[in-house]
Write a protein that binds this DNA or RNA. Structure first.
Lengths: 217, 217
DNA sequence: ATAAATATTTAGACATGGCTAAAAATAGAT
DNA sequence: ATCTATTTTTAGCCATGTCTAAATATTTAT
């Protein structure tokens, strides 16, 4: 069993690895967890002793297979709880993160398996992120940023990159939710904003937004 | 906000107060939490500083109104989660305690209110214990120990005193669940065992069992 | 190749919450 | 009333996880 702190570090490293491949630097972890590099340095030693990460001084860390499996399990719990909060408890997608952050540390395999069943074995969380299965495998779906679509191309919104509540509430205001079909009407070279069509409405969105929305073509 | 440790102490004192009225001794708390008196002594100081308990050296503690409300809220969470586990996740009544013990520390008022609604605002947990409302009030129902019923009296099983999984599994084996009607056929002076009738069956149960079952006449 | 900037680690401190062993206070028995 | 047994508190130590400040290693720029 791991402490909540250990689990948070494992998860942070896991998320950072999905972005960079290379060894994860002490500083990157510190930034992600808004803590100090010295604290990270201490914890890395501990995780290394527990065979969760491979660590060579001054060279960053990598999760071992065991570490990856452990991380995937935490992520699985986090995302299943998010689905539960939205589907069963009427939370909106911008409210779930902090609570799931607590719930993910509950230790009970039966709880998670039954929750999975109650929810109908969901494959994605409310932000479109995939839910790892019991063995830690996750099927990534083919997706591209909205900003990478070309003029006159269409896609279905399948996820968000930034899942801060600010961004999510902004999307709510615009009526953009997972599953919506969006068509690029025009790309403005000037500011990289996009004119799009969604349902029967046409409006324009900034590049910043387009860079945070994942689409399936 | 309180730490998990603090919450566990508050809850322990709350439960002890339902039994004894008088100030709760350091030793009693230590025993309940299977910890040492010295640790309790330290924690009591802290809870006292936080106005959760009133404490005079060598005289035990009492919860303040604020402490009682805090405790009732933790108990509310614990019992709602127990209902959830049984009703929605197919846990049996002997499996819920340890998981609820973890879940009760999750901080999110919305979570608990929505959970309450999802479960249909239950008034009792799977062991027959009442669930405090949002303000910490709980309606106690009139109940007596099975061992206090007289010959030929009948009652409906409404709760258990000992909710250890051993005892609960024993009850399962005997087919005794909440809601069952039990009639006393005979009381044996010899060993205080009881001959009872339940459904169409007649069998005998020991005094130990009868002392742990609550009945509504 | 070396100096400056950046990143990482170590050393030492602090807070929480637990423990043991010893001291102090209270309660009980005579 | 006093001595004994019990309870409670204190003192001091340990582990976890955090921090700051200082030392050390690495990278970058010239």
């Amino acid at each position: 069993m791991f402490s909540q702190s250990e689990e948070n570090y494992i998860k942070a490293i896991y998320h950072l690895e999905t972005i960079s491949n290379a060894g994860i630097s002490t500083n990157a972890i510190a930034k992600k967890l808004t803590t100090k590099a010295s604290s990270v340095s201490d914890m890395i030693k501990k995780l290394s002793e527990k065979k969760l990460v491979v660590y060579k001084k001054y060279q960053g860390v990598k999760l071992t297979d065991y570490g990856k499996k452990t991380a995937a399990n935490i992520v699985r719990k986090h995302r299943l709880w998010e689905v539960f909060l939205v589907e069963k408890l009427n939370f909106s997608w911008d409210e779930v993160h902090d609570v799931a952050e607590q719930l993910e540390h509950i230790k009970s395999p039966k709880l998670i398996n039954q929750l999975d069943a109650l929810l109908g074995f969901p494959t994605h969380d409310p932000h479109g992120d995939p839910i790892p299965d019991k063995d830690g495998n996750l099927k990534t779906i083919e997706k591209s940023l909205l900003s990478s679509l070309h003029k006159n191309e269409s896609g279905i919104c399948v996820g968000v990159d930034d899942s801060s509540s600010e961004f999510l509430r902004f999307l709510d205001k615009k009526g953009i939710t997972l599953g919506k079909t969006i068509t690029i009407l025009e790309k403005e070279d000037f500011d990289d904003s996009l004119s799009i069509q969604m349902d029967d409405k046409r409006f324009s969105i900034s590049n910043k937004i387009a860079n945070n929305l994942y689409m399936k073509k």
